[in-house]
Design a protein around this nucleic acid. Sequence first.
DNA 1: ACCTGAACACCGTTCAAGT
DNA 2: ACCTGAACACCGTTCAAGT
Lengths: 236, 236
Amino acid sequence: MTAEAAPRKNRPAGRPAQKILSKEGITVAALKLIAAGGYEALTMSGLARRLGVAPSALYNHVASKHDVLVMVQDHVMAGVDVSGFGTEPWAEAVRRWAWSYRDVFSLHTPLIPVIAVLPVTGAPRTLAMYEELTAGFLAAGWPQPLIVPAIVALESFIFGSAYDVTAPEDIFESGELAAANPKFTAAVRARQRDGGGTGSRTADAAFRLGLEGLISGLEAQRQGWAEGGGQAAAGR
Amino acid sequence: MTAEAAPRKNRPAGRPAQKILSKEGITVAALKLIAAGGYEALTMSGLARRLGVAPSALYNHVASKHDVLVMVQDHVMAGVDVSGFGTEPWAEAVRRWAWSYRDVFSLHTPLIPVIAVLPVTGAPRTLAMYEELTAGFLAAGWPQPLIVPAIVALESFIFGSAYDVTAPEDIFESGELAAANPKFTAAVRARQRDGGGTGSRTADAAFRLGLEGLISGLEAQRQGWAEGGGQAAAGR
DNA sequence: ACCTGAACACCGTTCAAGT
DNA sequence: ACCTGAACACCGTTCAAGT
């Protein structure tokens, strides 16, 4: 297929004439493996096979498989669209960013537990995204203390929604328990779908509703903060 | 410690006089294992050891480890507080539910990928929770087509936020990249924390902001729907 | 420094044999 | 039907040996 990863043919032991592996190469190979066979296909030996090396060779470049996931994550993050910040109104920029973020990570849900707890130090592109976001929030007049909590809230919603995209369409069919749960069963039948039809975009309808709610609701929280002189709204 | 799982002492092969395992017993043992050593400790052989059987014996009662996670999930779900629905105003009931849901699953984040795509058919307690929720939304006057999308949106936010609870406090420290990302670095320093101090509840501040935003924003979306005669708000 | 090859300590799961 | 015990096909990771 591609020429870059010529299969190893009985290469002798010992340090090779010029080095074969690099972090960048490992990351690219990992992304190809994922594209071809999903995250199940991403194993250290699968990665080594594709790169034409022994599995143990990988450990000269990464400390663990977790390291590989971090590298993949930072690469994938480049696909998130922050172009609206600086060119569009705040709400519109958030919309563009949020939809692209969800779409990208719905194809990479196994990265979510990794990103969600990952110190940004190790992920320069992710950090760059946050910098763009922050600039956009500041330009829209957001008070500094609310910016990080607002971004975290939006991201939390996006991560959860990315899982939802991967759920089967009939996830809420109550089956034989329908009779015991009539109100929910009826609500599932009547639920709003995106596009108005019975097409398979129930995840989109929920994401749109939540995102529009969050955008207007965060805006309201911001007003409340300004009026309250620096305290957040109603508590637990 | 407990008497129930007396260690096996050279029990002979063959069907025992009376059966030793049950789904309920396996679930309880799994929860104890998790409480003691987290999800790393939940292995099929660890489970078998605690129950005093051979690992293969478990497969007479469950088809896979995924089955065990589903059973654990339904058990954990019982800890979510839906008592507000029917006794409190809608917003207050949602608050109580959402905080308890997040708190419970922040201790069980490995279940999130399982629940998020799990057909409710296999999880009766989860289904019962949705029934309660739906009743509460209906009683508050929610239009039927918006109820499921609204619940899904709230749940997505809750799942994402549960991960956030487990993140290290210094997750946003930009380290040596601080100079290249000045606005974000400053926003992190200035960020709102719950309780007003520098205590470790940054996750709570973000959750509160997002939840209050969602509650008021969803309320606004509901108004928009009523006024628009049955269409949702601004699109992609 | 950076590769090979063998080995280690696990996983989840299958299956024949036993009562 | 429901257990044991051995075996299988994987994992990620370590480490001595080689250049």
